[in-house]
Write a protein that binds this DNA or RNA. Structure first.
Lengths: 346, 346
DNA sequence: TTGAAAGCGGTACCAT
DNA sequence: ATGGTACCGCTTTCAA
């Protein structure tokens, strides 16, 4: 009872290995009692069909690659991963996670060695742009490539993206509609080499402000701070060192907005009493600090991407290969109308 | 150029398939120029060694299972996953993620069908207890089983756990040393059926308080609220409805402490002015709210577990199969000495 | 309904 | 240094 292979099971059950195989994968082709005997023998020997062998025989790998910049531990990436896994795991696929593709070295090595070549059935790209030549490299895998929040979707077989620009446009518009005059957008600077999906948000802000300039008395400004650990503190400093404190702050993401709210309190500025602030994401603690924000749902984006990938793998047609989802304004407590005749007291 | 197998590469390079195989897996056994020819042919045909075939031949699956209760999206689980992946990915292993093993249905189905049987090289169990009979089931996989923050480590081949009880003991002790009199512990109630690692924290709190009763004038209490989405609000209500507001709050985790700090402000209670509060985890935003807390590092626990798993897979001995790590007190701004002669003003 | 046998794409032993 | 060749464990015709 040392070797627990399909042969041993077949032998114990008194059938051929073909029958054992069928008992597991196409039970309807095997007679009731034969199947029972097989299953009994199998559980006696702790036998189970080997996915490796199935994979080899079928030509599939039952594995997909997920490429992301930064860590999987960021809110967005975690949600996307969980969403993908929620669909793919049950479909029999494992996710091979390639992190930090934003790092030049990793990136180079990934696209040159292409470890996924012949080793995954599909590739998912989360949240960053890939260069045309990199797309070309990826194409060599000859498997479906699905984008999730990638700046351009043209290179992908399918994609799902959130409309970052429209979302932030809407956020800024909301601030403008509230009657605010001095509006700032706080963001961490875009990576030089690597356009991320998130950078579109800044454009939405600018567009909304420019569009409103004719009809509203507004003074707007983009406060861009370096990336890195303490981008929130940098943003705080940037805001506090403005000549006049803003009425309204649009934040690139909740992870920027939440620290700002908390730390501005220590400097005597309370929202919505002294200023309105709006985030983007609706991520952890947004509800706790009562943050008005633009909600997106990366978990469901991951799940949707996975479903598209699965269809592609089965050769089924996609009714909508490239979908765009709109973030939704979630009104909570950090936005308030600026009353023109009742100036802020401090 | 349709079939891009090892034979085609061998043919184009004018060598045998053995040589192609060696060129990839044992390059030092192949002459310089031969290797070049092989690699050229390979890249021409977009060829790469198939992991499925390697897996089949080697008897390994190059896959490990990660079992967790709840979602992978929780702070702890995400960090553990990332830590595991940081080591395992480069070692050539993918992680097959089984979530929600806390759900009775999933649990039953998992341990009965045992989908991992013969399909993973190791099993990692994150943060929950498994019953003796479940361990027995798992044992049928005949692969190393590694525990991460599992209440008992005896059933595992290796484990790494954080000393939750000692950590909270220390946290409570710190509050006591600060001179606080009325100390509460806020926690979400333990799952009936499923002892989680985290439940040991409550015991640490109780032990610290009981030990101090003789020498200190303290009044302590455990405030347990139901699990679920709004456990933090429930804890808030529990704290506010105490007969006297506590001097000190020990929280089961930062996710409890952070909302408490923020929401107690709205009720006029500020830390450390009106009370001290200490968390557990040092998770996201703990630094932002300046929370004094007990730090643990689940990422590195994941990485350590992965390294142990890898050693086990190689048959190497473990110098310390079961390790315990101590959480560390991180002093920040939410704890302060209670001055006996200067009672709290409000 | 069941069995025999040919691979799937590598690896590694044994020769040369 | 390189080639020939049995497998690894399963799936899937094709026959019986």
């Amino acid at each position: 009872m040392h070797k627990k292979g399909i042969r041993e099971v077949a032998h114990i059950a008194g059938v051929s290995i073909s029958t054992v195989s069928r008992a597991f994968t196409r039970p309807e082709l095997v007679s009731e009692k034969t199947r029972e005997r097989v299953m009994e023998a199998a559980s006696m020997l702790d036998f189970n069909i080997s996915r490796s062998a199935t994979a080899l025989k079928s030509g599939q790998t039952f594995r997909v690659a997920l490429l992301m910049n930064e860590e999987v531990t960021s809110w967005f990436n975690t949600q996307v991963f969980a969403g993908l896994n929620s669909v793919l795991h049950d479909a029999g696929y494992d996710i091979s996670l390639f992190q930090h593709i934003d790092d030049a070295k990793n990136r180079e090595s990934f696209f040159v060695n292409l470890p996924v070549l012949r080793n995954v059935d599909a590739v998912f790209v989360a949240s960053f742009a890939i260069e045309p030549n990199e797309v070309e490299q990826l194409r060599r895998t000859h498997v479906p490539i699905i984008g999730i929040n990638t700046p351009s979707s043209s290179a992908f077989d399918a994609s799902i993206s959130i409309d970052d620009e429209a979302g932030m446009f809407r956020a800024a518009q909301h601030m403008i509609n509230l009657g605010h005059h001095k509006i700032v957008y706080t963001c961490s600077a875009a990576e030089e080499s690597l356009e991320a999906s998130i950078d579109a948000r800044g454009r939405g802000f600018v567009r909304a402000c420019e569009a409103a300039e004719g009809t509203h008395d507004i003074d707007w400004k983009v406060l861009s701070v370096p990336r890195g650990r303490d981008f929130a503190d940098a943003a705080l400093a940037a805001v506090l060192s403005e000549e006049t404190f803003p009425d309204a702050i649009c934040c690139q993401m909740d992870m920027m907005a939440i620290p700002l709210i908390i730390k501005l309190q220590r400097h005597g500025y309370y929202s919505p009493r002294d200023y309105s602030i709006i985030g983007f994401d609706d991520s952890a603690y947004a509800d706790t600090v009562d943050l008005t924000t633009m909600r997106q749902d990366p978990f469901s984006m991951g799940a949707t991407a996975a479903k598209k990938g699965l269809k592609l793998l089965r050769g089924e047609p996609l009714d909508e290969p490239h979908s765009i989802v709109e973030p939704r304004l979630v009104l909570r407590g950090t936005d308030a109308r600026l009353e023109p005749d009742r100036p802020l007291e401090r």
